[in-house]
């Protein structure tokens, strides 16, 4: 390669080439991250995300934010620190939600006929926006982990409340008290339906009644902070450009 030659014929072409690469990179990053994030999320928190009768006040609120802050933290570590792009978390969550919605509609409904109001995905967007905004405003990984991570955990339940509330109203069915979401589960039997598999509303925390969701969200926020730190460093490692010599 000759250093004196130019790869482009004019500045205009250089700008056009640069913009074209931007789109190719964004598309690739979006869909590869979508794939990795989705397989991670569906296999670590998926059951709580798939079905309304798993979306309880304790484990859904605890598990979903903890396992979902991972990829946003890693992608932020690359996009912000290398390119000052403040949308690492939002781009991850948009990808995840796109993958989930396509699936819930075309496959959960389209192939196995579960109604969409039984298998819609959880909303992670409020936490993602806050995570990105905190990083952009503070420019600090520590502040983002502590403030953003805590917000990620705390905002999850309120962010989903308007969607899930109508399904958490109590109903009486054959003499038993349950939620409307539980009733949906009874009508749509799955291999994960048996109560020894369905992990909802377990433990003595239930005796605290109305406090279950806030306490779970607070615990989730605490662990989300720790997970953010860890995954931020993972993200820095994955963003490396090192070469190794072939053996």
């Amino acid at each position: 390669m000759s250093a004196s030659q130019s790869a482009v014929r004019s500045r205009a072409e250089a700008v056009k080439v640069s913009r074209t690469f931007d789109w190719l990179i964004l598309f690739t990053l979006f869909f590869v991250v979508l794939g990795g994030y989705h397989i991670h999320y569906m296999l670590t928190g998926g059951d709580w995300d798939f079905w309304t009768d798993w979306k309880d006040r304790r484990l859904w609120v605890t598990v979903a934010p903890i396992v979902s802050i991972t990829f946003p933290a890693a992608v932020q570590a690359c996009l912000w620190w290398r390119y000052r792009l403040p949308f690492g978390a939002v781009v991850c969550v948009l990808g995840l939600l796109l993958g989930e919605w396509i699936n819930r509609y075309l496959n959960f409904w389209g192939w196995t006929y579960f109604p969409v109001n039984f298998c819609f995905p959880s909303n992670l967007m409020p936490g993602a926006i806050v995570l990105d905004v905190v990083l952009m405003m503070t420019g600090s990984m520590t502040a983002t982990a502590v403030i953003g991570g805590m917000a990620w955990g705390l905002l999850f339940y309120p962010g989903n409340w308007p969607i899930i509330a109508p399904l958490h109203v109590p109903v009486e069915y054959n003499g038993m008290m349950m939620t409307l979401a539980d009733l949906q589960g009874y009508h749509y039997v799955r291999t994960g339906t048996p109560e020894y598999i369905r992990m909802v509303e377990k433990g003595t925390l239930r005796t605290f009644g109305k406090d279950v969701a806030p306490v779970s969200a607070f615990f989730s926020a605490f662990v989300s902070i720790l997970i953010y730190f860890l995954w931020h460093f993972f993200g820095q490692w994955f963003a490396k450009t090192d070469f190794v010599k072939a053996a």
Binding site: F31, L34, N103
Partner: peptide, 22 residues
Amino acid sequence: YAIAIYYGASYFTEQDGTWHQT
């Protein structure tokens, strides 16, 4: 590769979840 990863890791993997739940 991005398109192929999307179909493999996202589309058909979560689809597997609903099939085996059914």
